[in-house]
Amino acid sequence: MDLVDRLLDGDRRALARAITLTENEDPLAGDLAAAVFPHTGRARTLGVTGPPGVGKSTVVDGLVHLERATGRRVGVVAVDPTSPFSGGAILGDRIRMRRGASDPGVFIRSLATRGHLGGLSWHTGSVVRLLDAAGFDTILIETVGAGQAEVEIMRYAVTTIVILVPGLGDEVQAIKAGILEIADILVVNKADREGADGLVRELEATLELGAGSAASWKPPVLKTVATADRGLDAVLAAAHDHYLYLESSGSLQARLERELNAEVRGLVRDLAGRAALDWARSAGAWDSALSEVLARRTDPRSAAAGLVTRFLGRVQRKSRP
């Protein structure tokens, strides 16, 4: 596929087009993912999450700038929510990402959630792989404004940075049960505001309660003022330390195996389910099973089990020599 060759060659339009095809679930997307997969696994992924308004995009802009200073090429995936009413979205993360805007070593793509919960888009993982295959060394993934439930970022980012700001009040209590747990690095941004030191102490005390063995990673709590580029070098250094820790402890490999295992399992479920549904619809078994459920003569689970059993029986008959 010409598009794949161009993408692997670093052609920005080809990369942008490939991301669109992936997001749109175009029929070409499967072949595209298969063709780039052997060229992935090289990039380092960093996730940035936190409640709305804490400065995620500004932090990302600063981290991009620092990574570029070391010569690394940087990809950014920035996710904003889709309106549940119109299906449209306003993607505004680029407003704060000005420094990389015309740098050929930077590629920024805004994605809408398109109905996916969890703080990311359905296709985040695939988009990250496309950037990886196109030769970006570091890939930053920014979630929507997140609180308790949006923890999916940890699947795609090797290192997850959670950003908070002073003055969130009780919200910090709620976050303790959610995204705080997935933080490899905690950042208190807007640290020139009153209450920053108090928040740092509170977070450190919370982490102390959940601390594991002496050998395990202890998330540092770092203060930043992202609009003035203060403290971001320490964040990047901590991300580097975290990566080295994962590598030396064997967790990096274990994590990769866990994620790929989960991905293949999920796809088997998905593909098997689709195949069964396609058969049931085309064979007319679907309508009769559903009418039994609507009449309350069969419960949903039994109806589904019946369909799957018939589908599997058919598959077995077909595969006999």
Binding site: T82, S83, F85, S86, G87, G88, I90, L91, I95
Partner: peptide, 11 residues
């Protein structure tokens, strides 16, 4: 957005 389009706004 209200018409269902995805809008990238750059400031």
């Amino acid at each position: 957005r209200d018409a269902g389009l995805e809008v990238v706004y750059t400031g």
